[in-house]
Amino acid sequence: MADTAIYGLMAEFQDPSALVEATRRAVDAGYRKLDAYTPFPIEELAEALRFRDRRLPLLVLAGGIVGGLSGFGLQYWINVINYPLIAGGKPYFAWPNFIPVTFEMTILFAALAAVFGMIGLNGLPLLYHPVFNAPGFALASRDRFFLVIEASDPKFDRHATGEMLRGLTAHEVVEVAN
Protein backbone atom coordinates (compact mmCIF):
# COMPACT_ATOMS: atom_id res chain seq x y z
CA MET A 1 0.00 0.00 0.00
CA ALA A 2 1.49 3.33 -1.01
CA ASP A 3 1.98 5.90 1.70
CA THR A 4 2.25 9.58 0.79
CA ALA A 5 2.76 11.11 4.23
CA ILE A 6 6.48 10.48 3.99
CA TYR A 7 8.93 10.27 1.08
CA GLY A 8 10.24 6.90 2.08
CA LEU A 9 12.42 4.94 4.43
CA MET A 10 16.16 5.36 4.49
CA ALA A 11 18.62 2.75 5.67
CA GLU A 12 22.21 3.70 6.42
CA PHE A 13 25.15 1.38 5.76
CA GLN A 14 28.78 1.60 6.76
CA ASP A 15 30.41 0.09 3.70
CA PRO A 16 29.66 -0.38 0.01
CA SER A 17 29.45 -4.17 0.10
CA ALA A 18 26.63 -4.09 2.67
CA LEU A 19 24.74 -1.54 0.59
CA VAL A 20 25.03 -3.53 -2.63
CA GLU A 21 23.93 -6.69 -0.87
CA ALA A 22 20.98 -4.91 0.76
CA THR A 23 19.95 -3.33 -2.54
CA ARG A 24 20.04 -6.70 -4.24
CA ARG A 25 17.80 -8.19 -1.55
CA ALA A 26 15.35 -5.30 -1.59
CA VAL A 27 14.98 -5.64 -5.36
CA ASP A 28 14.60 -9.40 -5.00
CA ALA A 29 11.90 -8.76 -2.40
CA GLY A 30 9.94 -6.98 -5.12
CA TYR A 31 10.63 -3.30 -4.41
CA ARG A 32 10.99 -1.23 -7.57
CA LYS A 33 10.91 2.42 -6.50
CA LEU A 34 14.18 2.64 -4.66
CA ASP A 35 17.49 4.37 -5.00
CA ALA A 36 20.88 4.22 -3.35
CA TYR A 37 23.04 7.21 -2.38
CA THR A 38 26.79 6.88 -2.23
CA PRO A 39 29.87 9.12 -1.96
CA PHE A 40 31.44 7.68 -5.11
CA PRO A 41 30.26 5.67 -8.11
CA ILE A 42 29.74 1.96 -7.47
CA GLU A 43 29.26 -0.05 -10.63
CA GLU A 44 27.60 -3.00 -8.93
CA LEU A 45 24.83 -0.76 -7.59
CA ALA A 46 23.29 0.13 -10.93
CA GLU A 47 23.27 -3.56 -11.67
CA ALA A 48 21.67 -4.39 -8.32
CA LEU A 49 19.02 -1.73 -8.94
CA ARG A 50 18.47 -3.19 -12.41
CA PHE A 51 18.96 0.32 -13.67
CA ARG A 52 19.87 0.80 -17.28
CA ASP A 53 19.58 3.95 -19.34
CA ARG A 54 20.86 3.85 -22.89
CA ARG A 55 19.62 7.28 -23.91
CA LEU A 56 22.78 9.23 -23.10
CA PRO A 57 25.12 7.55 -25.64
CA LEU A 58 22.43 8.00 -28.28
CA LEU A 59 22.12 11.69 -27.43
CA VAL A 60 25.88 12.09 -27.75
CA LEU A 61 25.85 10.32 -31.11
CA ALA A 62 23.06 12.60 -32.30
CA GLY A 63 24.97 15.64 -31.04
CA GLY A 64 28.05 14.56 -32.95
CA ILE A 65 26.12 13.99 -36.18
CA VAL A 66 24.31 17.32 -35.92
CA GLY A 67 27.58 19.11 -35.12
CA GLY A 68 29.46 17.52 -38.01
CA LEU A 69 26.73 18.19 -40.56
CA SER A 70 26.16 21.76 -39.43
CA GLY A 71 29.90 22.44 -39.39
CA PHE A 72 30.37 21.15 -42.91
CA GLY A 73 27.15 22.77 -44.13
CA LEU A 74 28.12 26.11 -42.66
CA GLN A 75 31.43 26.15 -44.49
CA TYR A 76 29.90 24.94 -47.74
CA TRP A 77 27.22 27.60 -47.65
CA ILE A 78 29.67 30.37 -46.79
CA ASN A 79 32.62 29.52 -49.05
CA VAL A 80 30.73 28.03 -51.99
CA ILE A 81 27.27 29.64 -52.12
CA ASN A 82 27.09 32.89 -50.21
CA TYR A 83 30.61 34.31 -50.38
CA PRO A 84 32.71 32.57 -53.03
CA LEU A 85 36.18 34.05 -53.04
CA ILE A 86 39.27 32.81 -54.83
CA ALA A 87 42.06 32.21 -52.33
CA GLY A 88 45.38 30.50 -52.98
CA GLY A 89 44.12 29.18 -56.32
CA LYS A 90 42.02 26.59 -54.52
CA PRO A 91 38.57 25.57 -55.76
CA TYR A 92 35.58 27.04 -53.93
CA PHE A 93 34.57 23.58 -52.79
CA ALA A 94 37.99 22.59 -51.43
CA TRP A 95 36.48 19.99 -49.11
CA PRO A 96 39.71 18.76 -47.46
CA ASN A 97 40.08 22.28 -46.10
CA PHE A 98 36.68 21.97 -44.47
CA ILE A 99 37.60 18.85 -42.45
CA PRO A 100 39.28 20.46 -39.43
CA VAL A 101 36.32 22.71 -38.63
CA THR A 102 33.86 19.88 -39.32
CA PHE A 103 35.79 17.70 -36.88
CA GLU A 104 35.92 20.35 -34.16
CA MET A 105 32.18 21.03 -34.49
CA THR A 106 31.45 17.29 -34.23
CA ILE A 107 33.39 17.08 -30.97
CA LEU A 108 31.92 20.30 -29.63
CA PHE A 109 28.28 19.30 -30.17
CA ALA A 110 28.85 15.76 -28.92
CA ALA A 111 30.55 17.05 -25.74
CA LEU A 112 27.77 19.56 -25.11
CA ALA A 113 25.24 16.75 -25.60
CA ALA A 114 27.13 14.53 -23.13
CA VAL A 115 27.26 17.15 -20.39
CA PHE A 116 23.82 18.68 -20.73
CA GLY A 117 22.30 15.31 -21.54
CA MET A 118 23.70 13.85 -18.32
CA ILE A 119 22.53 16.82 -16.26
CA GLY A 120 19.12 16.85 -17.92
CA LEU A 121 18.46 13.11 -17.69
CA ASN A 122 19.46 13.23 -14.03
CA GLY A 123 16.86 15.92 -13.46
CA LEU A 124 19.45 18.40 -12.28
CA PRO A 125 19.78 21.15 -11.22
CA LEU A 126 17.36 20.31 -8.42
CA LEU A 127 18.42 22.15 -5.31
CA TYR A 128 15.71 20.67 -3.06
CA HIS A 129 15.05 17.00 -2.66
CA PRO A 130 13.30 15.18 0.21
CA VAL A 131 16.31 12.94 0.93
CA PHE A 132 18.19 16.01 2.16
CA ASN A 133 15.69 16.10 5.07
CA ALA A 134 16.99 12.87 6.51
CA PRO A 135 19.28 13.36 9.49
CA GLY A 136 22.85 12.39 8.71
CA PHE A 137 22.30 12.42 4.94
CA ALA A 138 25.11 14.97 4.61
CA LEU A 139 27.44 12.01 5.09
CA ALA A 140 26.31 10.62 1.72
CA SER A 141 28.94 12.90 0.21
CA ARG A 142 31.55 11.66 2.68
CA ASP A 143 31.65 8.09 3.95
CA ARG A 144 28.11 6.69 4.38
CA PHE A 145 25.96 4.65 2.06
CA PHE A 146 22.18 4.95 1.97
CA LEU A 147 19.32 2.95 0.54
CA VAL A 148 15.95 4.63 0.19
CA ILE A 149 12.73 2.77 -0.54
CA GLU A 150 10.25 5.32 -1.72
CA ALA A 151 6.73 5.53 -0.30
CA SER A 152 5.32 5.54 -3.82
CA ASP A 153 6.38 1.94 -4.29
CA PRO A 154 3.24 -0.24 -4.48
CA LYS A 155 4.80 -2.71 -2.05
CA PHE A 156 5.71 -0.01 0.44
CA ASP A 157 4.46 -0.39 3.97
CA ARG A 158 5.91 1.70 6.78
CA HIS A 159 6.11 -1.15 9.17
CA ALA A 160 6.92 -4.13 6.97
CA THR A 161 9.43 -2.27 4.79
CA GLY A 162 11.13 -0.90 7.90
CA GLU A 163 11.40 -4.38 9.33
CA MET A 164 12.89 -5.69 6.11
CA LEU A 165 15.47 -2.87 5.97
CA ARG A 166 16.44 -3.45 9.59
CA GLY A 167 17.03 -7.08 8.71
CA LEU A 168 19.56 -6.06 6.01
CA THR A 169 22.47 -5.25 8.33
CA ALA A 170 21.46 -1.59 8.17
CA HIS A 171 23.20 0.60 10.70
CA GLU A 172 20.10 2.72 11.15
CA VAL A 173 16.69 3.12 9.49
CA VAL A 174 14.92 6.48 9.46
CA GLU A 175 11.82 7.94 7.88
CA VAL A 176 12.35 10.61 5.25
CA ALA A 177 9.91 13.51 5.50
CA ASN A 178 8.28 14.63 2.30
Binding site: T23, D35, A36, Y37, T38, P39, F40, P41, I42, E43, L45, A46, L49, F51, D53, L56, P57, M118, I119, L121, N122, L124, P125, L126, L127, Y128, H129, V131, F132, F137, A140, S141
Partner: peptide, 15 residues
Amino acid sequence: LGWRGSAKHWSRYET
Protein backbone atom coordinates in the same frame (compact mmCIF):
# COMPACT_ATOMS: atom_id res chain seq x y z
CA LEU B 1 23.37 21.53 -8.90
CA GLY B 2 21.68 19.60 -6.09
CA TRP B 3 23.88 16.54 -6.49
CA ARG B 4 22.81 13.89 -3.97
CA GLY B 5 24.92 10.90 -4.96
CA SER B 6 22.03 8.84 -6.33
CA ALA B 7 23.17 5.54 -7.81
CA LYS B 8 21.14 6.25 -10.95
CA HIS B 9 22.82 9.64 -11.31
CA TRP B 10 26.24 8.10 -10.79
CA SER B 11 25.54 5.60 -13.53
CA ARG B 12 24.73 8.30 -16.09
CA TYR B 13 27.55 10.43 -14.73
CA GLU B 14 30.09 7.69 -15.34
CA THR B 15 28.77 7.18 -18.87
